[in-house]
Amino acid sequence: MTEPNTAGVPPELNAYRRAMEGTLGIPFTAGNRIERLVNGVRIFPAMIDAIEAAEESIDFLTFIYWQGDVAERFGHILAERARAGVRVRILLDSFGAHSMPDSVLRDMETAGAEVAWFRPVKRWRFWQVDNRTHRKILVVDNRVGFTGGVGIAAEWDGDARNPDEWRETHFRLTGPAIDGLRGAFLSNWVEAGRRGFEDRWTMAEPLPDADRDGALIQVLRTSAAVNYSDIATLFRLVITLAQKRLRITTGYFVPDTATVEMLCDAARRGVEIEVLMPGPHTDSRVARIAGEDAYGPLLEAGVKLYRYQPTMLHAKIVLVDDAVVVTGSANFNHRSMGKDDEIAISIIHEPTIAALGVDFDTDRARCEQVTLQAWQERGVWQRFKEYIGRLLSPQA
């Protein structure tokens, strides 16, 4: 295994890197640039600019492609680049993107874009219905990539100012970490029955000016068809690694029993743990009810729980000791840990971690805290919903 260049990385940060590499078997790459993009008002223009600048290839994978102006914009621009001779490959999850406008689909296909559907919903393949690809990946010319939590739908097209504009974080990457994004795309593309290998390869190279101050990035792609994936390993690992502080932002908080126990153990050994999750605005009441079953033991152990108030909170960020951040498409729930194909990126880069820490504080200020006293005083109806949630949690 080639050791990444860790010039300028303090030894204590290098310890996190080695622990994650040794556990997951995937090295970090050096020489990367990363830019965080907060909310659709910044995410979509950056993605569209990259697509418009494409000269050779576009690989695009998404779980959600719904209605709205942004769906029309993306479809038009992808079609335009295909007409210009750029190789455009679009992979859509057949469950998450089922309501995609037919007109957008026809425009892209007529223009020459290759469109494939991941695991079409067929009754005789009922075992595949519950295992989707939840990855969100865009790779342009094998030189710039995007990943995170954003879907292509009107709900993300804004700045989290009201319930119609979801709160999201996405990332723009350049450097060798792009190879990991492309590999995640290709694994799903090949499963969809398409030719995945290239006539010629253009590999992403380390950026010379990022050698010392660039980001160390580890890319983990997981396939979950047996009720467990390395996403669960990753999340449990960072809980174990945390020494001082663990800050979790997630769109769906439904930890399994083992993860709840690990969070409680970490809190009891003195780790400050804060969890931000959706509040009154959520697209999955089932997930919220299922997650509430874990509140009692977490609160008793000292874990602080917060519900975001302005709109749906859909970001996926785990900050560990101001040393490493884990992000990507995975939520802190059963589906991401055991049912869906996901992509996660672990980042060691002080400026990015500092900025995400500020984002966390800003988001927490827009939350209401769930207190232990209020939770202990909850009514019979709430307790009944928790019982139902316990039964539903494997699907949440």
Rank of each mutant, 00 (worst) to 15 (best):
D213L: 08
R194N: 15
D199S: 13
F197N: 13
F185L: 08
S229H: 12
T222I: 02
I231N: 05
G183V: 02
F235N: 06
G214Y: 01
H170S: 04
L181A: 12
I178H: 08
T257I: 09
A192W: 06
A242T: 01
G183T: 07
L216G: 11
V254P: 02
R194H: 12
I231G: 01
Y252M: 10
V190N: 10
L234S: 03
T249S: 14
E191R: 14
D209P: 08
M203P: 12
L237E: 02
T174W: 02
V226P: 00
R245D: 02
F253T: 10
T249N: 13
L237T: 10
E198P: 04
R194V: 11
R236K: 15
L237V: 07
E205W: 04
F185Q: 03
P176R: 07
R172P: 04
N227I: 01
I217V: 15
G180K: 05
P208H: 02
N188G: 14
K244N: 15
I178T: 12
M262S: 15
R221T: 08
I231K: 00
V238D: 00
Q243Y: 01
A204T: 06
T259K: 00
L216T: 07
V219S: 15
W201C: 12
S223V: 08
T250K: 04
L234E: 02
I217R: 08
S229C: 14
Q218S: 09
S187H: 04
